[in-house]
Nucleic acid binder design. Sequence first.
DNA 1: TAAAATGTTATGGCTGCCCTTATTATTCCA
DNA 2: TGGAATAATAAGGGCAGCCATAACATTTTA
Lengths: 222, 222
Amino acid sequence: MTEKTFTESIEMYLKTLAEAGLGEPIAIGKIAEKLNITPVSANEMVQRLSRQGLVRHTPYKGVELTKKGRGVAVDVIRRQRLWECFLLEHLNLEWSQVYDFACSLEHATAPIVTEALAKFLGFPKTCPHGNPIPDENGNFEILDGIPLPAIEVGKNVIVQSIKHPPGDVLAYLQERNIMPGQQLQIAEVAPMEGPLTLEINGREVALGLNIAEFVNVTLCEE
Amino acid sequence: MTEKTFTESIEMYLKTLAEAGLGEPIAIGKIAEKLNITPVSANEMVQRLSRQGLVRHTPYKGVELTKKGRGVAVDVIRRQRLWECFLLEHLNLEWSQVYDFACSLEHATAPIVTEALAKFLGFPKTCPHGNPIPDENGNFEILDGIPLPAIEVGKNVIVQSIKHPPGDVLAYLQERNIMPGQQLQIAEVAPMEGPLTLEINGREVALGLNIAEFVNVTLCEE
DNA sequence: TAAAATGTTATGGCTGCCCTTATTATTCCA
DNA sequence: TGGAATAATAAGGGCAGCCATAACATTTTA
């Protein structure tokens, strides 16, 4: 077993790559933006990761996780999402806050602790934001949710998951009850990339397109 | 409020100082030994801590926590001991392992999480090793236990607490059932700084003096 | 197809925290 | 009281991970 241990910084890079999409290469600029560092620094670091066989970097094309890198990333994500469950369900912390708190804890969690935590929680399948929690072997189901902006006006949908957004957007969503399990309807789509108007529990709520991209929903059958 | 945040390294120095005794100054050499670094490095770091007002360093005399430093140290200790309780009682991890696991988590735990954890655990008064858990304001009771080597032969005692020992000593103690709450008797004291012979649950157990120093006990009343 | 946007490389610098080696100062103890 | 042990200081170094600035390469797009 290559049971190595990686720095917090490395784990954050790998997690960021995994969260950004496990298919296509990610632009270095995007990584830099998400990690709040300069593109030059991101470039440096990507080279280090490349040397360690954790990512594959095609200049001017982007960065991809290798199998090894993906394995680490999935493990980090597992740890984080388990902690999110614990913090929300057992410590009763705010839905909008558990991501950040769990992000600190994830880097300080040994494998034995991770597995004991998973058992304690009853092996949850998803985190409080609706995203899947990989199992001990790194396997997880890919969600079938659709980004909210792709839904037609008038359709009833249920929020399935929230992709991790930047800044205080989670608190913004929580205030408006846009959380997994919530049913809502698209009441109106403003022209010129304008906001969506949603109907949630009988109330009208406007939601910018950029934010709506982070909300994945499934159609209600009726 | 000076609600600053400190590096993991700084927290470890301060915690080490607090654990080594909250009275007299600690020699730099001792700190270096406990943190597994060279005395030169420890000296450097102590100067940094001094500049930040966290410790008071009297050359050739030793290092002491300032009020500010003690506050941080007590907070770190609170976090660690709460996690120890959680890891032992809820995740069912080994008594001998929870100290180290908690030590990683303690540096990644925000105040809100600490308080929520304390509430979840029911505000425990001591950690699994019998050491007091400071409350939210940093107050805690000082234990009245006596180091095992100070007890006379023949006396019945109950283990009150285990000071944190180096290396694998906790596993060694756990194997021999020397844990808080355990009743035992000093059967024999070998001459020339030789080991103690203890009677535990009808079995005889030899325990070196150096290790016994870490075991605090109270006399059984009868 | 040329300008704008983005990515890459080079250079130099910074901080935190650790290291070694060597010299000097102080304290402790026999 | 003098040598051993311990502590302090100095000088030089390393590594991780970030920064800025500048020059240059490639890709995108208008």
